[in-house]
Each structure stands twice: as structure tokens, then as C-alpha cells.
Nucleic acid binder design. Structure first.
Lengths: 250, 250
DNA sequence: CGCACAGCTTCTGGATCCAAAAGCCCGGAC
DNA sequence: GTCCGGGCTTTTGGATCCAGAAGCTGTGCG
């Protein structure tokens, strides 16, 4: 496990990896319509990859300097990230990367099961061979991805295609929100011991292709349960008593 | 039906009810920790009550002057509202109050049914007589409210108390998001012909008190279906072909 | 008479500057 | 030696200012 494994609980001070942030900034500096959304993407990537670990305090000045912009677009990005549930504003003390408690993770996976089973059911009614083929392609791409943000993105694309047949944009938006909340920890799981995950994609595709809704739902359920348990293991190991509140000094 | 009924489709120009906005601003000027969240609350109220109808273009300068602040906190508020799905940014043309298509409304109520039935199930396992009593109180308060924003707020409080027993903050957050999306139109329904709605609260409370999960779920389902149908009627009547995209000129 | 191009206006988005509040540290007193 | 209070510093949040881009309008040409 590389240094991507989050130090979590600690890291409240100024311990901000400016170099890694600059590197991420470089990857995103190409053609954005506004600086604000660029910063948003950079910070989202940074949080998802663990460059900005949970509990990390985010000082606007520092972030702005690292990325090379003013503080204003940083503020915009932080507000958006707050809405996404990735950061948290502390009164007059600035933003902090949110942690996820074990309870919250359990909840997220419970809701995801509800919503994704529904999305799967709706999608399977509209499934076509072309979509199956595209799913296989995206599944392969997802399995090929190794590094941080791309790994999460590839998986997101796979599920976007899977559920797109349902034509339920609001439902997908909800699912995406929930996936975002646990994205960081899934990444950790991947790095720790996600070896057999490749099977999940193919197993799910086969079930969808078969057309048996109940069977496919079962496959999806068990897949989500497996990921949930792995995430929980990682969570309770990393931070025993940490909840959403960051351990700031008083 | 007062002038709160939205003119909808039109109203792309500068037709902004500055006076009504100032009045709303007055109601909120008391003790906020930051101006940004105050503006956010003001604009949210304005959208929920129909003061800012769907399709209304939101010019930062105008809003700032009406409320009496700078453009900067207005921008912050607009970003938050975008995350809530209440407004939409159009490239270089600013923010517009989002419309809700009939399809989107159907989706919202479908997802709400899924989530709220689950929340109800979980809550009923933890229900106590004290909670029942508080629900009755909140139900009465909600029924007593007549005007715009307070009506929505009172109903939100009722459901917050109902689902609070489940101790599922993430689930509640999701439900709240969805309720926010349709809040405006429910308000319209109330104004148009929501006469028998008072029964819903008591009927639901009685079912919860009874302890029969299946029965209570049924009551909740049919309540949501009734509101959905009323909202849909209002939607298809108001704007036949309007989708999320606002009819801006090109 | 209609269409197209150019200039003007207007609005958003970004940067720099300023004020206020909260935390931190040091000194003094008990 | 410890605890409380006051001043200092740091950092957020707000206001004003500036630049760039998109739309609108007026005029000229076909």
C-alpha cells in the first residue's frame, strides 16, 4: 500500500502536499471554460485520490497558491464540494475534508442498493445487444485502469452506461452523489486487496444479458455488499472513533 | 389562486419582482453568521414561493441591489442553489431558475417513494409514544400554516421528525433534496386545490401508531401518489413542452 | 427591402484590497 | 506553579475594480 493510504485522523495542521497538488493542477490546466470548475475538478481529484486526506484542513490561500489562481475560484470550488458532501465548513475556521463514519458508509451502501437495484430493473427492460457490447468494452477499460482518479472515473462510466438505458437522469444523479461519497475509500480498497473485482463486471454483464432481473439484482446486491464490507474494514481499521466531525483543536 | 401562480415559460427578460424580493430580504435580515447563507435562504424562499418563477433569469447585479449586498455573496448563493438543483448556469449567460419537467417530477416521486417507505419502515421500529405526540403537534402546525415558505418548512419539519427515529442522516438528506426539487409545485397544488391534505397527516400518524408497517407504507405511498398526480396536473397545464432548459433567446 | 458585419453595451468571472472575528501566545497575578 | 486576561496574528468573508466575451443594434451593401 503506497502513501495513498490516508493518514486520516491526524493531518489537521498545515501539512498540505503542495507538490502533489501542483501535479494534479497540471493535469487539469487544459481548456476549461472557467477557472472555478477547474479548481473544483482538481480538488475533487485530490480528495478522491487521497492527496487531500479526510480531516485535512483546507486553507484558501494555500490552495490558491498551489494551483496558481486567486482565492476566489477556490472559494467557489469549496462551496460546490461542500454541496457534494466532500468538504465541510467550520464556522469561521475554514473548510476541512470530510471523513465518513462507518455508520454513514453503511447507510450509503444501503441506499445505493435500493436505488441501483431499481435502476438496474428499469434498465434491463430497455437493454439492447449494442449496450451489452459497450458495457463489455467499458468493463475492460475499467479493469485496465490502475491509478487513482481514472479508476473511479472508469467505473463511473461503466455504471452510467449500465443505468443509462433506464432513462432516469434524476435517479442517476442520486446514485452518482452516493458513489462520490464513498469513492475515496473504494480506491483504498482497490489498493489494499481488490483482486477479484474484475469478475464482478463480467458476472454482472452476463446476468444482465441473461435477462433474469432477479438474478441480476442479486449479483448487484452481493457486489455492493462485498465492496461495502471492504470499505467498512478499511474504515474501522483507519479511524476507530472518527465521525464526520474533524478533530480540530479548540 | 393569487399571483403566486407562476407565469413560467416566459419571464426571461428583466421582469424581476424587486419589491417582493426586498420584502423577503427583510424577513431574513436577522442575525446570520454570514451574508452568503442569508442570500441563499432568501433566494431559496423566493424560488419556493414563486417570487422567482421557473425560467426567471437571475442577474447578479439586480439580485445584489434588491437584497442590498454585493454581488459576491450572491454568487456564493447561486452556486449553492445550483448544487441543490434549483438554478442552472448557462455558459456565459448567468443563472436561470430551473424548471421541472413532468418526467423529472415523476422520477422524483418514484425515488421518494422508494426512500421514504424505507425510512418509514426503519423509523417505525424505533417509534415511541413521545414521538407520536410530537408528530401530532407538528402535523397541526403544518396544517395551520398557510403562506408560502412556512408551509413548506412546516411540512419538512413534520417529515424530519417522522424519519428522525430511523437515525439515518444520509437517507434524510437525500429525501430532503428530493422534496426541495418539487417544493415549489407542491405549494402551487396547495394554493390550487389542496383541501383534503389535512387528513393525510392524521391518517399517516394513526397508521404509524398502529404499528402495521405494511399498512403505514401503503398510506405513505398513496399520499405521495396523490401529491404527485396533483403536481403533474399543475405541470402539464402550466407548461406543456417545457423541459429543464429555459427558453432563452439565441 | 433584407441580410450581414461591425461597433457598442452589458453582463459574468477573476484579481486585488480591506475589515472583522476567532485562535494563540505571552505576561501577570494569585 | 497554574490560571486567567489581553493583545497579536492569522484567516475567512465582503466590497470594489477590471478584463473578456456574448448579445444587441444600427448601418451599409446587395
Amino acid at each position: 500500500m503506497s502513501e495513498l493510504t490516508v493518514p486520516a485522523g491526524r493531518a489537521s495542521g498545515a501539512g498540505l502536499d503542495a507538490a502533489a497538488l501542483q501535479q494534479l493542477a497540471g493535469k487539469h490546466q487544459t481548456g476549461y471554460r472557467s477557472v472555478g470548475v477547474m479548481v473544483y475538478d482538481i480538488l475533487k481529484d485530490a480528495i478522491l485520490t487521497g492527496t487531500l486526506p479526510p480531516g485535512q484542513r483546507l486553507r484558501q490561500e494555500t490552495l490558491a497558491e498551489s494551483i496558481g489562481v486567486s482565492r476566489l475560484p477556490v472559494r467557489s470550488a469549496l462551496i460546490q464540494l461542500e454541496a457534494d458532501g466532500l468538504v465541510e465548513f467550520h464556522e469561521r475556521r475554514g473548510a476541512v475534508v470530510k471523513s465518513l463514519s462507518a455508520d454513514q458508509a453503511r447507510e450509503v451502501y444501503g441506499i445505493r442498493t435500493l436505488l441501483e437495484v431499481e435502476a438496474l430493473r428499469l434498465s434491463m427492460a430497455e437493454m439492447t445487444p449494442e449496450r451489452i457490447a459497450r458495457l463489455r468494452e467499458l468493463g475492460r477499460t475499467a479493469d485496465a485502469e490502475e491509478e487513482g482518479a481514472d479508476f473511479v472515473d472508469a467505473r463511473t462510466e461503466f455504471y452510467a452506461e449500465l443505468y443509462d438505458a433506464a432513462h432516469r437522469p434524476v435517479l442517476w444523479e442520486m446514485i452518482e452523489q452516493l458513489r462520490l461519497k464513498v469513492g475515496r475509500y473504494v480506491l483504498g480498497w482497490r489498493l489494499v486487496g481488490g483482486a477479484e473485482h474484475g469478475h464482478s463486471h463480467e458476472e454482472l454483464i452476463a446476468a444482465v444479458e441473461g435477462g433474469d432481473v432477479e438474478h441480476a439484482s442479486g449479483v448487484l446486491r452481493s457486489h455492493l455488499e462485498r465492496v461495502r464490507d471492504a470499505v467498512l474494514e478499511l474504515l474501522v481499521a483507519g479511524e476507530p472513533g472518527a465521525t464526520a466531525g474533524a478533530p480540530l483543536r479548540h
